[in-house]
Nucleic acid binder design. Structure first.
Lengths: 328, 328
DNA sequence: TTGTATGCGTTATCAG
DNA sequence: CTGATAACGCATACAA
């Protein structure tokens, strides 16, 4: 293994100059710099991260805690990961994925996609490491506001989806919610209700279907029920999977989409692409969200002053109108 | 930060004994061991990986090179990753994901899910690190046989899928292949042809549709063409996405599934779950494949003798019969 | 601008 | 079975 000393010898400088050339090139004379760089080239020298970490107490590694349910092959988190990784690798940081907080591997910062409870939060504080949350971490209450986070504008998203159907002349609009004790779903329901209220429509309790598993089958069986027993002509779903289930139900009931029933999905990652007819959906910029998560973390890692305030970013989703919605 | 010296002082032993207690407990007297363990408990001591890595030249990190196209949110690779991570974390190894071979972070071993060419292979040899391939790495030719790999039995899979349709009385069976210069698709076609030959059926060239993008839309438009101009009653697809496209085409042509057309998918990860009717598919044990990849790598990392032969595992997929296939 | 001495926390070596 | 010492490769502090 070639070390700074090998490089130093070849470049006719001291090891220190090599180190500087690597970390603070501006503090080295152009001539020395050039000689060092040539030597590095020639020897194919690579910094030893372990030695560097030992003395700088930094690792070049960012830890990403993915939700446990990720194992169930979710395109959403794959896209999120891709966004995170893209920014991190630009900054020469590696991503380390684990499904729990504790581990023996050290890291410079951590991105949490799911913060279960106060217990996790306390562990987090013990680590005293830069951290960014995906989602408001609402279950932490006030504590979450002291941390950086990036979240989707769930309220606005559902509002836009509902307004889209309303503007097409629909009035009997159902909401299909999958089960989650995450506040994001509460906000989506609020967005739906806000839009309905603005159009002066009383929401029939039967229109709001909640507690669903997030699968097309769960949505399908519920949708068959709702569509058979009510005059609903539009459905807002909180995921594309649910929307696909509703479309399957409509097919079984011989309701044409979009002529007799309009359906809006939510997420726009993966599943919407394979729906027939093409799904109108609220498309989340998941890749971008991942990038922002990474960017905020990097800023915090690089912040020496330690007085960076907590930053909170709320990102908008965009309604992509395709073939599953039409005028009533 | 507490170090071995802190622990040593508290346990009334030397730092060396602490180190031994951690790495070779059997070489320490039971009394000392107990005192050290207690001290570790009490102080909440954690090994400094960087320092350890510096001297042992090991990192506790396994690198996983995912295909670049992963960014496109593919449930297949998410499942594969989950399998890999499960085994690795059991062995206190962390997973580091990157999309290219080179990086400054050191690692103990590497799992490659996509080996592009000889160039990559040469880089690999320079690293002289334990490596396991996902897939035969056929494009490396002979070289691949010197490496460990795990692959699916593509031939058998396609053979089983085709045989299933044949046993249901179908004779005009099409094959939908997505575009890939990977040998796995060649093998799948061979499996299809073998089954057809065994039933004494001549394959009509029009039945074999290749060069498709791996999307439901690509399959749909092609399928409309094929189904309109031939007497095909069964379709074997090389992915679930293609199968979904074929089903969409059938719907558009008013062909009932499975009464008028039987369709078999391939993969059984993610997309098959949301198909209507439920998709008969060749289900790959992707999670298990991931686990095997990790296991082989760990064995190679732990192998001191350095004379472990290259191991090659070929894993079978299982035909899961659901509602998209029926007797002719 | 450059170089020297020193230490980061751990384990290998070798002596006891 | 145990301990003293050196070394891993790099960067910080200080001196030149």
């Amino acid at each position: 293994m070639t070390t700074v000393y090998d490089v130093a010898k070849l470049a006719n400088v001291s090891a220190m100059t090599v180190s500087r050339a690597l970390n603070n090139p501006e503090k080295v004379s152009p001539q020395s710099l050039k000689r060092v760089q040539d030597a590095i080239q020639q020897l194919g020298y690579q910094q030893n991260q372990a030695a560097r970490a030992l003395v700088t107490k930094s690792t070049g590694i960012v830890k990403l805690v993915m939700p446990k349910r990720l194992g169930m092959s979710d395109p959403y988190f794959t896209a999120l990961f891709a966004g995170i990784a893209s920014v991190l690798s630009e900054n020469r940081l590696a991503v380390l994925i684990e499904d729990e907080l504790s581990s023996t591997i050290k890291y410079d910062g951590i991105i949490l996609t799911e913060l279960h409870d106060e217990h996790s939060y306390n562990e987090l504080l013990k680590l005293s490491t830069p951290v960014v949350l995906f989602g408001k971490g609402q279950r932490l209450g006030e504590m979450a506001n002291q941390l950086d986070w990036v979240d989707l504008n769930h309220f606005e998203g559902a509002y836009l989806a509902t307004q889209h159907l309303l503007s097409l002349g629909h009035t009997a609009i159902a909401l299909f919610k999958f089960d989650s004790n995450d506040s994001s779903l509460i906000e989506r329901e609020q967005g739906y209700r806000k839009a309905m209220a603005e159009y002066g429509i009383d929401v029939d309790p039967n229109w709001v279907v909640s507690g669903l598993e997030d699968t097309s089958y769960a949505a399908k069986s519920q949708a068959i029920d709702v569509l058979s027993h009510s005059a609903v002509t539009g459905v807002v779903c909180t995921s594309d999977l649910l929307a696909i289930g509703v479309i399957q139900a409509a097919r079984e009931l011989n309701r044409k989409i979009p002529q007799q029933l309009s359906v809006v999905g939510f997420d726009g990652v993966g599943y919407d692409q394979m729906c027939d007819p093409r799904l109108t959906t609220l498309c989340q910029p998941v890749f971008w969200i991942g990038q922002r998560l990474a960017q905020l973390l990097i800023e915090r890692i690089q912040d020496k002053t330690n007085d960076l305030p907590a930053r909170h970013e709320i990102i908008s989703a965009e309604l992509v109108v395709r073939d599953s919605t039409a005028v009533k």
